[in-house]
């Protein structure tokens, strides 16, 4: 049990845990402070400057970089803070692709949440010069797209790649208003160290990183990834009896919400028209559909011709531990050989 810290936020007495920052403490107590670059699983960056708060009626600072202290008095709003936030929000919106209806993050977007909270004044906003030039979209990755015109440079993807995945495939590049997130040497993501895990895509608070061919599911099913024996927990998103998305299960003890490229993006085989759904037996040089009984009979007949080291078995990493156990038992006890391996090492 972590030490409890008592503090006051907007006149309310709240408790937080030692080591938390003011933003975490506030959000935990259902007091929203506008923010874009903060993510609970990552180190705070303090880049968006939206989570400004007033401490003890004196100093203004950013909540995500201020550890909670006993007796601290926090105000999340003041005329000065509101004005500064307004300016920052307006700057972001003027630099942002505002075609929200065409964005998959619409209604889930953190920038929309900030705008909703801070409030937008069209007259003020129109004083600014909107970005005219459209930056090229990086769709080099087969699974997701990066649209810099919708990026707020919060750096969550950069920190995710470094802190969560350890790949460090992307970073900020270029200076000033030309700064973007890209692979080393401003190269497309496919030419970087990117492992396509998609951890950045799920954390992107706006519509900059989006899954290709995304369809919003109608409901979700909690299950275990079928790709390998790790047993990562996931939620498959279902729509019209088709799997359309996969999301890591934060409560899975095996994976704690994380997924790899296969678990996250490799579900389309399920509904693929070329997927094998019945055994095939080669007859006269052509594969012909067969029943399971027919196929198993053929296997028994052919296996019976071999004994001992004439035989070898390779099992799949997609099998469960139990399946793999049975395969090796069969190979050793029935076929009489130790020639057993599987592909998980590949």
């Amino acid at each position: 049990m972590k030490e409890k810290i008592n503090l006051t936020i907007n006149g309310r007495s709240v408790t937080a845990e030692k080591g938390m920052n003011v933003l975490e403490a506030s959000l935990r107590n259902n007091i929203y402070i506008p923010h874009l670059c903060f993510h609970a699983e990552l180190q705070p960056a303090g880049a968006c400057r939206l989570c400004m708060v007033e401490l003890d009626g004196q100093r203004t600072t950013i909540a995500c970089k201020t550890p909670v202290e006993e007796g601290m008095v926090v105000r999340t709003e003041s005329p000065e803070i509101s004005e500064t936030r307004k300016v920052a929000l307006e700057l972001l919106v003027a630099d942002h692709d505002t075609d929200c209806l065409n964005c998959v993050q619409n209604t889930k977007c953190a920038l929309q949440r900030v705008a909703d909270h801070v409030g937008m004044n069209l007259k003020r906003l129109q004083r600014l010069k909107f970005r005219e030039e459209k930056l090229p979209v990086d769709d080099s990755n087969p699974f997701f797209t990066f649209n810099p015109n919708r990026c707020v440079l919060c750096g969550i993807c950069v920190r995710t790649c470094s802190e969560v995945q350890g790949a460090e495939a992307i970073d900020f590049t270029n200076r000033g208003s030309e700064a973007i997130v890209a692979g080393f040497g401003a190269k497309p993501r496919i030419e970087s160290n990117c492992e396509s895990c998609g951890e950045c895509v799920v954390r992107c608070p706006v519509g900059a990183l989006t899954e290709k061919d995304y369809e919003r599911p109608t409901h979700q099913v909690r299950t275990v990834c079928s790709f390998c024996g790790c047993g990562c927990g996931l939620f498959l998103g279902v729509r019209d009896n088709r799997i359309v998305s996969a999301k890591g299960d934060i409560n899975s003890r095996a994976s704690q919400g994380r997924l790899c490229v296969k678990g996250r993006f490799g579900f389309r085989f399920v509904n693929h028209p070329e997927r094998l759904t019945s055994p095939l037996i080669k007859k006269d040089g052509e594969f012909v559909e067969a029943s399971w009984d027919e196929a198993l009979d053929l296997i028994v007949e052919k296996f019976s011709r071999f004994k001992g080291d004439q035989f070898a078995a390779i099992s799949s990493a997609k099998c469960t531990n139990e399946d793999n156990y049975l395969t090796q038992k069969f190979t050793r006890a029935v076929m009489g050989t130790n020639n057993i391996d599987h592909c998980a090492r590949l």
Partner: peptide, 21 residues
């Protein structure tokens, strides 16, 4: 300054650009 800002924080990255405009 607009050319030399690192681009990390919003006010400096975008604000200096708007002021320059």
């Amino acid at each position: 300054t607009q050319k030399e800002t690192c681009g990390e924080c919003v006010p400096c990255r975008l604000g200096t650009k708007q002021m320059l405009n």
